[in-house]
Every structure is written in C-alpha cells, then in structure tokens.
Design a binder for these strands. Structure first.
Lengths: 166, 166
DNA sequence: TTGTGATAGTTTCAAATGTAACCATCAACC
DNA sequence: GGTTGATGGTTACATTTGAAACTATCACAA
C-alpha cells in the first residue's frame, strides 16, 4: 500500500481537528474575544469550580506556560480569583469570579448547541460510530495513561520498523 | 447537560490529534530531523510526483507561507528540485530529487507501519467505527467543500443560539 | 501599449508557543 | 537550624506561525 496523505490517519485527524477548532472557537472569540487557551481555562474552572494551575493543565492537556498566561489574562479581566493555599504557599487555588461564571454560563450552552448541531449532521449510526471509534483511538493512543501522570512512557507499539534508523 | 471538557468533541479531537501527531512525527524527526510541514511536503510530492506550492498547500491543508518555508528548507537539503513553468513564469513545478525520493521511500513504510500498529490496538469493529465516524465527521465539518475551493463559506449549522450575542 | 486587477510565491512583522532558566516554597534528612 | 532536592508557578529567550505587505507575472480590456 502506498502512502496517501488524504487517507493517512494522523493527517485526517489534524485536518478535521483544525477545522472543528476554528468553527467552535469562533463562538467564544466573537462573543468575548477569548483565545483557545483562555476558553479552556474558563471551561475547566467552570466545570471544577476550583483548581490549581497544574490541575488545569492536566485536565485540559495544556502546557503549563500556556495555562499560566491564559490564567493571567483571565485574571486581568477579573474573571478569575486566586487564593494561595494556607498550608502550601506554592499552590494557588483558582476559581471563577461572578463575572467569570456569568461568561461561562453564557458560553457553555452555545458550545454544546454547536456540538449538537454538528453531530446532527451525522446519522445516529454514524454518531455512534464516531463515539466508539474515537474512544477506541484514545485508548490506543494511551490517553488514559497519559492523563494520570506524564511520567512513564507508553509501551511501544508493535512496529517491525521502529527505530530502524536505516 | 453541562459542559464537561473531557467529553466535549473538539477538545477530545484536539487531544487525540496532538498525541497522534507527536507519536507519528517522532519517526521522521528521529530519522531525518524533519518538521511536520516538511514531512507533509515530502509526502505530497512523494505521492503526486510534481506539484506547485499552491497545489501542495491545498492538498496538505497548509498555509502558503508554511509551504513556502518547508519547500525552501527541503530545497536546502537538495531533496526538492524546482522548475519554472515555461508558459506561466509565476508557477514553480516542484518535484523530489533522487535524494528526496530515497528519503520518502525510507519513511513511507515506517509511517504506514506505525499507523497499522496503532490501528491494530483496535478491534475490527472499532476500526470500522473509527473510519465510518471520522468520514462522517469530515463530511459534517464540510471538509469536502473546503477542499475544492476555500471561497464560499459553509452553510451555517442549525443552531438556535448562533449569533445571539446576548 | 498601457493600465487594472488577479494570482503564485516570498518576505516582513507581530503574536503565540515551548524550552529552559528562574523564584519561591516545601519536605526530608543531616 | 541548614542543606538538598523536588514542586508550583512565572519569566526570558528563541522558534514557529499567520496576516499582511510585497514582488513578479499574467490576463484582459480600454
């Protein structure tokens, strides 16, 4: 089998993801001028209530500097309040202010509605297939393992050609 | 239904894609120090034989400046040859040199083998589901339309909340 | 033939990003 | 108490990126 980019899985994933990201991000960009990292921090705190920067990073799969900057930006908007942990003063417990919660409550249903509208373009069977397939792919990629701790590497895939530098 | 990032489609896509991209890119990075855009240009030319920068951009869904820089870089490696169209001197017909083709022939089977190894972690049913679901998602996102011409926008999705700036 | 507008491709510039260094704090051990 | 190593989080620096400006060329029309 020859390699064709158009049918190659990582390429297809990339393209679909980029397009989805563009379409979804238009919602919070148009409404509030939020960037993707800012939206993710908002959504994470909207869901969790309170979290540290590290927890947000793990939960939203973002680099810690990205989280740091997004948090700083949302704090400038007065959407995030920060409280230093009394026992461990390295920790900053972050949570949404009333304004932040209001913004989240305004955005969340729009985001879910757009997701619903997108999935409504799929037949029920296709929808099931997407959920099944995506979950299986996540498992295959080792996302479950990655989630807990970024420490140990995945067990390598069975690839006869792996590491054959040639 | 509340918005939970972990079950939210664009977020799941993003995470899976980022992880897949990292894993796949390790192959050509380790072997040749190629970047993602460089690999895509190589793969596109490996597939098409000859193409202009614009065609590569359309085919690989990359911004034209990204293509331009990746092409320049591969040219510095002497992996790409360029020939100006005799009838329209704005066009540059790009193709792989012998060295470029050799690199592609070395990489392509590794990439396909890794894809196969990844998909081997899925059951046959899950694999079918992934392909069905991904294809349906691509259609829903309008990737088919996007491919032909980046001109007209997609017909808007059915979203009761669209554009309700509040 | 000389504008005028479009197109292929490159370059410039500013913004976003990741790596690495850094600061403050903590836990553990001497 | 003081040193050592780890951790949460921020900052500095270099790289990557895309938008917009630019160059060269083309088609077309006055």
């Amino acid at each position: 089998m020859d390699l064709r980019l158009a049918t190659f899985l990582p390429y297809r994933l990339n393209r679909a993801t980029a397009l989805a990201s563009t379409q979804f991000s238009r919602i919070y960009r148009d409404a509030f001028g939020l960037t993707v990292p800012e939206w993710r921090v908002l959504a994470t705190l909207g869901e969790l209530g309170t979290a540290t920067a590290k927890e947000i990073g793990r939960d939203s799969a973002m680099h810690k500097t990205k989280v740091s900057r997004a948090v700083a930006s949302l704090q400038r908007r007065r959407w995030i309040a920060r409280q230093t942990d009394s026992l461990d003063r390295r920790l900053e417990h972050l949570s949404l202010t009333a304004a932040g919660r209001a913004a989240f409550r305004r955005l969340a249903p729009k985001m879910l509605a757009y997701e619903e509208a997108l999935l409504a373009r799929l037949s029920p069977a296709e929808r099931r297939a997407l959920m099944t397939g995506l979950a299986a792919l996540e498992r295959a990629l080792g996302i479950a393992e990655q989630e807990q701790k970024a420490g140990r590497p995945m067990p390598p895939l069975q690839t006869s050609l792996s590491n054959s530098r040639g």
